[in-house]
Simulated scan of single mutants.
Amino acid sequence: MTETRFHAMPGGRQIAYRFTPGQGPALVFLPGYMSDMAGGKATAVFEMAQATGLSCLLLDYSGCGQSPGDFADGTLSRWKEEILALIEALELQEVILAGSSMGGWLMLLAGLALGERLKGLIGIAAAPDFTEWGIPQMDKALLADGETIWEDNPYGPEPTPTHPGFWADGQANRQLEGEIAIDCPVRLLHGQRDPDVPWDISLQLAEKLRSADVQVTLIKDGDHRLSRESDIALLLRTVAELVLPRAGAAD
């Protein structure tokens, strides 16, 4: 097991990460909202990379998992900055981003910033723009007034907060309203029994991406997490399809 390390950001933030060097483009797994790098999908991707000699980076956004900080300070822009800082610090020249739920929004923002270094995207129940379509108008008004809203959390005992800073930053980073200038191969996986992110979001995303190499895989009985053994197997096959040919070409 590769040890957890910490990257120091300007201003004192410490970002927890795990990295295994290897061939080909580096896989970078981006967790969902209030999730971390200890999740089942992230762990499976990391273990696959270690077993096949691929490069892989896991990280916890500030205020999440092992990274210190206040979750209430977290925004997409802040977390994107942390992702890009780690990619730079580790000198990763080619990158494939895999994003789960909110991580699927962050993969677009980070991918746009990476430019030609971006070699692929894998979205797992990707949730771009959920501050727009996922929040009722009444709650948007509360957030706009500076109030935090709380929702029932089906995945844990504590309610899920949405803080006004995160919401405002999300609204400023919406991606589905115009063309997304990304040209690399993109694979989108989505369960059709996802109660949190409608699977139509992946279809909308596929339409907005400029890339001609976009494939959407719908799992008819899949839920939001897509963490069953069969779901993990599909994710790893998808990773292998994108990464292994490039890793072979780099030999």
Rank of each mutant, 00 (worst) to 15 (best):
T4D: 01
R13L: 13
R13N: 03
I15T: 07
F19G: 09
T20M: 06
M34N: 14
S35W: 09
G40P: 05
T43C: 06
M48V: 00
C64Q: 12
D70M: 03
T75P: 14
L76A: 13
L76N: 13
W79C: 03
E81V: 01
E82G: 08
A85H: 15
I87P: 09
E88I: 06
L90F: 05
L90S: 07
I96G: 02
G99L: 10
G99P: 14
W105Y: 12
W105A: 08
L106Y: 09
L106T: 11
M107W: 05
L109W: 06
A110H: 11
G111A: 03
E116W: 08
K119D: 06
K119V: 02
L121E: 10
I122S: 15
E132V: 10
P136T: 06
M138W: 03
K140H: 14
A141F: 00
G146A: 08
T148H: 13
E151A: 04
P154A: 03
Y155A: 10
G156P: 10
G156F: 05
T162D: 07
H163C: 01
G165A: 06
G178K: 07
E179F: 11
E179M: 05
I182E: 09
C184N: 01
V186E: 08
V186D: 07
Q192A: 15
D194I: 01
D196K: 08
D196G: 11
D196C: 00
V197G: 06
P198G: 05
I201E: 07
L205D: 11
L205M: 10
A206Q: 09
V216H: 06
T217H: 15
S227D: 14
S230L: 10
D231K: 14
D231T: 00
I232P: 09
V239G: 06
V239N: 06
V243D: 05
P245D: 01
G248V: 12
A249E: 11
